[in-house]
Each structure stands twice: as structure tokens, then as C-alpha cells.
Design a protein around this nucleic acid. Structure first.
Lengths: 168, 168
DNA sequence: CGAATCGTTCAATATGGAATGAACGTACTG
DNA sequence: CAGTACGTTCATTCCATATTGAACGATTCG
């Protein structure tokens, strides 16, 4: 669409957002706030992104709910200021982890009520479900690393050997 | 919807699939093949899932393309048999990694052409983009571990983490 | 107070894409 | 060879939901 690289980035982030199950506009707003660096108002969003006031409000609050953007207390002014949080990555990861864990729990619950004559099916589904559990655990641990300060976490595989925790 | 636990699982997997950017039916088919254990034909899918022949064909091939299902050579029969691959988890992870890496590359390319007067914006976007790169790298490494045989991979961070095997 | 500004809400609309089913090509069968 | 049985394709339909815009309440300013 645009030939302006910054706008292209904003549009691309919108695409990625809706590819990840979000809305296009929320991705655009996040990208906009990210590039601007300084707090921006809903009105500025509507102008910069050519979106309605309603969408700006709804999607901004969606970002806020997901911990990706925040309101900054307007010092002397009447309009809410919005800015991207310091490290949106962490929030994105958290959300991914949450979805994995949620999927795991839901499946675990369902599979528990499989009838006895479907014991083999249950076994296969449980095996499969470990994917969600392990992914959630794995990412969560890495997340803890990143949050705890280390900007670039240590590579994973370099570790020694298993601890006997994960198995059933 | 259904009170049958197995059907509920199938329906749930459909929901999760479309939550992950896939189609509902592809998730249902995967779940169906997973629970059945034995190869099933397109016709059996249409009956079991109440879907059209076209959808069965299209979505089954979609699963095949994603490495989640495969055709099994019909010994004496004319119909294609379909079954879930041995470890669908790995394929799901691969796809996730691929998407992260793709996002990273796209953003990296875009941000490179930011004009000089937007150097600060470029910096912020680059920082943000590390999320995609690191996630891709990190997961990819873990994936290599899992693929290399270890059914249950070693935990990554080697940090003591709270409760290893709390819920079962 | 009255006027104006701002954020939110919600019913109506628009849009992207999934699901359908008829039509087609191909390979078996008898 | 004609007659079936499959699998695939694609134009159409259908559906979920993102987006809009007008209406509303709340707040601020003159």
C-alpha cells in the first residue's frame, strides 16, 4: 500500500496481529505507538491510521487489557495519552503461554471423561496433549528468564540433563 | 454441543485450530484421526463430522501439507486412507517457529528502510523485533532436542522452578 | 449553568475467508 | 468399453466478527 516504510511497518503489524487471532487495528495501533515513542491520543490515532473513533477506543483498550499499551496520566490535559509498554514481547509471550496452558487444561479435562472402551484413544490424546503442557512450561520458564532482567537469555539446549519432573 | 466426550474433544480441537489461525474442520479431522488411531477415508470423515466431501478433501490435504496427517497406501482398496502422523506436536511447533521467523524477517526488512530522521523509531522496532527472533531461535533449539529422540526434553533454563509436577 | 470535548457503547454494516456442492478428470471394475 | 467410485477443483453461499458511526453519559471549560 504505502511507500512510506514506517506506514508499511504499521500495516504489516496489523496483518500479523490478525494472523495471530487479534484484530488488524490493534496491531496497527501498537505499531503506531511503538514508532511514535511518545504518548498519543485517540484522536491522533484516528487521523494517523484513518480509523473511526470507536475502533480507536475499543482497540486501545484491548491492548491495555493485554498489557501491551497503557494510558499515561495526562498532566495538564483532558485527553488520555496512550503509549506502548516498555517490553511488549513479554506480554505477547505471556499470552501465548496462557493459550497453551488453557488448551492443555481443557483437553485434559475432556479426555478424562473418555469412556473405558476408548482407553486407546485416550492414551493417544494424552500423548498429544503433552505438547501443550510442555510448550507452556517451556515458554514460561524462558519468560521468567527474560523478565528477570537478562535482555538476551541463555540458549536453552546447552543445559546438562533432565530433571525427572516431567513425566506421568 | 455433544454430550459424547470424544465428540466434544473433536469439536474443541476444531475451535482451537481456528483460534490458531487454522480452519475448524482441519482441527476436527486431526482430532478424529487421533482418536480413531486407524486410517480413515474421506467418506468416513464426511459421515463422522458431518462435513462435505470437498471440505474433507481440502482440509485433509491441508493437514498433509502441514505434516500433521498422511495418506497410508491402501493395500487392496481404492480409497485413500488417512491417519495422524506419529508426533503431531513437532509439526505444530515447527509451524509456530516458522511463523515467528517469518515475522522477524519481514519486520527486519521493513525497519531497515526507515529514514534516518526516524532512527529512534527504528531502534524501538528493532528491540521489539528481537522478540520474534529470539522466540524462533529458542523454540527451534528445543524442537531439535525433541526431534532427536528424547521424548521428554530437558527443561531449558536450568533454573529451579516452583512446582514441577503439580497437577496431573 | 450552558457549551463543548472526550471516551465508551451498541446496533448496523462491511468484509474476509471458511464451507458447500455440483462439475470434472481419473482410475478402477465387471 | 461402459459404468462406477474416488478425489480434486472452484464458483457460490454462508458465517463470524471486525469496523463503523451515531447516540449517550461524564467531565471540563468559559
Amino acid at each position: 500500500m504505502s511507500e512510506n516504510p514506517v506506514d508499511r511497518f504499521i500495516e504489516t503489524m496489523g496483518l500479523m496481529s490478525q494472523g495471530d487471532g487479534g484484530t488488524r487495528i490493534s496491531g496497527q495501533i501498537l505499531a503506531y505507538l511503538l514508532t511514535e515513542g511518545e504518548p498519543r491520543t485517540l484522536q491522533q490515532m484516528t487521523e494517523a491510521l484513518s480509523i473511526s473513533k470507536g475502533s480507536a477506543s475499543t482497540n486501545a483498550r484491548m491492548l491495555e487489557m493485554h498489557g501491551l499499551a497503557q494510558r499515561v496520566s495526562h498532566l495538564g490535559a483532558r485527553q488520555d495519552g496512550w503509549e506502548a509498554v516498555a517490553e511488549p514481547h513479554l506480554q505477547l509471550l505471556s499470552r501465548l503461554v496462557g493459550r497453551f496452558r488453557q488448551n492443555y487444561l481443557v483437553i485434559e479435562d475432556l479426555v478424562a471423561s473418555f469412556p473405558p472402551e476408548r482407553a486407546d484413544a485416550r492414551q493417544r490424546v494424552e500423548d498429544f496433549n503433552q505438547f501443550y503442557r510442555q510448550s507452556a512450561d517451556f515458554f514460561e520458564e524462558w519468560l521468567a528468564h527474560m523478565s528477570s532482567g537478562a535482555e538476551v537469555p541463555p540458549p536453552p539446549g546447552a543445559t546438562g540433563h533432565p530433571d525427572p519432573s516431567a513425566e506421568d
